[in-house]
Design a binder for these strands. Structure first.
Lengths: 334, 334
DNA sequence: TTGTAAGCGTTATCAA
DNA sequence: TTGATAACGCTTACAA
C-alpha cells in the first residue's frame, strides 16, 4: 500500500503538500494540485485512516448500539444510519447491547477508543452510566425512545400517537378495544403508549382492557387469549408493536374470527412485519429510517438536540368499522 | 483520556513495561504486574486502538458487506457475526453494498484502510474486482452463497436442499408443484435451487411449473397468480425465499384456498419471517447465525476455506398431504 | 526483569 | 506556495 511519502516522492514535493492537496487545505498551486492528484490515482493511494485518526484525534466512524441486531425496528433505523453515514464519508460500527444493555459499556469503551464521532442508541435508554463511560468527547443520541430531557433523542410522541390510534378505533365505532402492551423492561416507550390509550378510552367513557406481552410475536397469542377471555365480544385490538399485531391477526383468524369484519387490529411502528400479514396490518408509523438519518446528521453537525417526529396513522386492511352489534337476546324480548 | 505514559509514570516504570503487561508479553515480575494493573484500573486507562493499529498494522475490526441492512436474512447472519466478533474482542463495521454491489468497492477500501482483519460478504458474490481491491492483506469470505471454488464461502448445498424440499412435497403426494423462483440477479443462489427442483420433478415424472419473483414479499402475489393461471389445480407451492412463501400463504388464503388443506406452501431460508404467518411456514432452513459465526472464526483463524453446511427441513403448519383429487368428471362418466 | 529509542502514516506548526 | 519537523499513542528490537 502506497503511503503519502510515496506520492510525495513520485511528484517531487513534500508529504505536507500532498496532505494539503488531499484535504483541501489552502496552500498549493493549481499545477502541483494536478500533479499530486495524478500521482494519487496512479499509485492508488488511500490515506491511512488509523494514522490520520491518531493524528487528528478523531475518526470517521459512527457507533450504533442496538438491543438486538436482527430486530426489524433496529434494522430499519440502521438502514437510515448507514445511508446518512455513507453520504458523509463515515462508516458504521455495530454493537449489540443486549436486552439489559449489558454489553453497552464495553461497546461504548470500544467506540471511544476508536474515536468515533458519536453513537446512536436504538430504542433503549441512555443511562448515566453510559454517559459517564462515553465521556465528553463522545456524544450519544437515542432514537425511537425518549425520556423528557434526560437524554437527547429523536422520537415520536408515543402518548399522542397511541391516543390518536385509539381515537381512530373509537371513531370507527369500536368500544371494546383490547390493548396488547409490551413488558415492563421497555417502559420508556410502553408507559406513554398505554397512557395514550387510557386517555382516549376514558374520554370516550369506554372500558379499558390491557394484557401484556413482550413486544415479540410469540408473546401475543397467549396475551390475546387472555384478552378474549375477559372480553369475548371485543371488536378491536390495539397492539403496541407490529409483531404483536401480526400475531394477533393470525391468532384471531385461527380462532375463527375474521379480520377486520369481526375484529379490527391496529399495530405500532410500521416495520416491514406489518406488510407481511394478510390482511396487511394498519399501524401507527414512526419514520424510523429518517430518524436514523437525522441522528447521524445531528451527531456530526453538533446539534444533538432532542426532536419529536411526526407519527402517522397508516390504514391498511386490518381495520374497519365496528360490526353492528348482534341483537342481544334480552333486549329483544318484548 | 489517560495514555500509556500516564500509567507508566504513575507506577514508576517505563511505557514498554506497561505495554508488556497489557498485552501479556513475557518480561515482567508478578509484582510490577499487579502495580500496573492497579494503575490501569485507577486511571481508567484504555489502550488507544488507533495508535495500536497503526503500530501493529492491523486492527480488531471485522467488516461486513450486506446487500441491504434491513434484510431479514442478512440480519440473522449479522447476529452471528456480532456474537463471534465480540467473543474475540473484535468490533463489526457495517457496509451496505446495494443490490448491484455498487458500494462494495468503496466500503472495501474503507475496511482496508481501517486494517480490518477480514470481511464477510453476505449473500452476494465476491467478484474479481472486489478481490483485487481488497488485496492480499484483507481476506474475504462469502456467506449464504457459493460458486464452486471461485471464492471461499460458507453455504448450504442449495441444489440438494431444493431437491430435498421438492422430494418432501412429492412424498406428501403432491404432483402439481409450482416454483416461486427468485430473479436473475441472484442467480448464484437461485439457479442451483431451481435445478434441485427440476431434478426432483423430473425423477418423479411430474410437470414443472416455474414463475419468477424477486425474492421479496411483494413480488410473490403476481407470480403466484401466474402460477395459478397456468395450473389452477396445483396443490403445492415451493417458494425460494421465506418472504415469497409468506406472501404465497396470504395470497392463497385471500383467494379462498386453505393452507395447507388445499395447497401446501414451502419456504426457504428459515428467516424469522417464516414464523410470522399463519399457518407458520414450513421451510428449508439454513443455519444463518452459525454461518455468520463461523465466517468470522475462519477469517480470524486464517482457515478461510469453503465449507458446506447442513440444511434442514422444518415442517410447520403450511405443508400437508396432497388433497385427494376431486373426482374428475370425465373419468366418472360410465 | 526492565528501559531506551525508533518508527507506524498522518497532519499541524513554523519558518522559508 | 512550499518544506522540515514534531507529535499523536503505541509496540518492539535492542541494550542494559
Amino acid at each position: 500500500m502506497a503511503t503519502i511519502r510515496d506520492v510525495a516522492r513520485h511528484v517531487g514535493v513534500s508529504p505536507a503538500t500532498v496532505s494539503r492537496v488531499i484535504n483541501g487545505v489552502p496552500g498549493f498551486s493549481a499545477d502541483t494540485r494536478e500533479r499530486v492528484e495524478a500521482a494519487v490515482a496512479e499509485l492508488g493511494y488511500e490515506p491511512d485512516t488509523l494514522a490520520r485518526g491518531l493524528r487528528t484525534m478523531q475518526s470517521a466512524v459512527i457507533g450504533v448500539l442496538a438491543t438486538a441486531v436482527s430486530d426489524a425496528l433496529a434494522s430499519q433505523v440502521m438502514s437510515g444510519i448507514e445511508s446518512a453515514a455513507r453520504s458523509r464519508g463515515y462508516t458504521v460500527m455495530l454493537g449489540r447491547a443486549g436486552l439489559g444493555a449489558e454489553h453497552a459499556p464495553s461497546y461504548l469503551r470500544s467506540f471511544k477508543t476508536y474515536r468515533a464521532a458519536g453513537v446512536v442508541v436504538i430504542s433503549s435508554a441512555i443511562t448515566g452510566d453510559m454517559r459517564r463511560i462515553a465521556g465528553a468527547r463522545l456524544p450519544l443520541m437515542a432514537v425511537a425512545i425518549r425520556n423528557g430531557d434526560v437524554f437527547p433523542s429523536l422520537a415520536i410522541d408515543d402518548e399522542q400517537a397511541a391516543y390518536d390510534g385509539t381515537r381512530r378505533l373509537l371513531e370507527l365505532g369500536h368500544r371494546e378495544i383490547g390493548l396488547l402492551a409490551g413488558d415492563e423492561s421497555s417502559m420508556l416507550v410502553n408507559a406513554p403508549r398505554e397512557r395514550g390509550y387510557q386517555h382516549a378510552m376514558a374520554e370516550a367513557d369506554a372500558p379499558t382492557l390491557v394484557e401484556r406481552g413482550n413486544s415479540l410475536y410469540d408473546s401475543a397469542p397467549p396475551a390475546l387469549g387472555r384478552l378474549l377471555e375477559r372480553a369475548p365480544r371485543l371488536s378491536a385490538v390495539f397492539a403496541l408493536s407490529d409483531e404483536m399485531g401480526a400475531a394477533a391477526i393470525n391468532e384471531l383468524q385461527r380462532r375463527g374470527r375474521r379480520v377486520p369484519e369481526d375484529v379490527s387490529v391496529l399495530g405500532f411502528d410500521n416495520t416491514r412485519t406489518s406488510q407481511h400479514v394478510h390482511p396487511a396490518l394498519s399501524t401507527v408509523a414512526q419514520p424510523l429510517e429518517r430518524m436514523g438519518e437525522q441522528a447521524v446528521f445531528g451527531l456530526l453537525d453538533g446539534t444533538w438536540r432532542s426532536r419529536i417526529f411526526e407519527h402517522r396513522l397508516i390504514e391498511r386492511g386490518s381495520t374497519a368499522s365496528a360490526p353492528s352489534p348482534a341483537p342481544s337476546r334480552k333486549r329483544n324480548l318484548p
